[in-house]
């Protein structure tokens, strides 16, 4: 059950991978839509923490183009609802996330990404 809200916080944590390790590239995704309660206060509070470019890139990678490319200045209700949909209702069930720097692949199976590292990748 990876959603874009957590994908937007996730960087590669393999050994020595400290620059250009975000955002992880999503490939071969299988999506599922699950409705969630709309919570505008949470979104408003959370939005400053969102890397907008990474969010746009990730949402295009999974085939959603509802969000504007530029970070919007004003938050109206429509936009909040779209954000809510993209961030909290699209679940990635299968697929993989690839680090743009070291190329480590984190497979997502059954909605759970496998973040375990091999022995030589541990700090």
């Amino acid at each position: 059950m990876v959603r874009l809200i957590t994908h937007n916080l996730l960087a590669c944590h393999a050994k020595g991978c400290t620059t250009n390790n975000f955002p992880l590239k999503l490939t071969d995704v299988k999506l599922a839509l699950r409705e969630a309660d709309f919570n505008p206060d949470f979104l408003r509070g959370f939005l400053p923490r969102v890397e907008w470019d990474a969010l746009i890139q990730a949402s295009r990678e999974i085939g959603d183009t509802s969000l504007p490319v530029e970070r919007p200045e004003m938050l109206d209700d429509d936009l909040l609802r779209q954000l809510h949909h993209v961030l909290l209702e699209i679940h990635i069930d299968e697929g993989s996330m690839t680090c743009p720097n070291c190329g480590h692949v984190y497979p997502i199976s059954n909605g759970i990404p496998n973040m375990l590292l091999a022995e030589h990748e541990i700090w």
Partner: peptide, 17 residues
């Protein structure tokens, strides 16, 4: 959201998440 992760290997979350 759930992650399969060994906490002894550290997290990869961005600062201030």
């Amino acid at each position: 959201d759930l992650f399969l992760q060994d906490i002894g290997q550290g997290f990869g979350f961005r600062p201030g998440s």
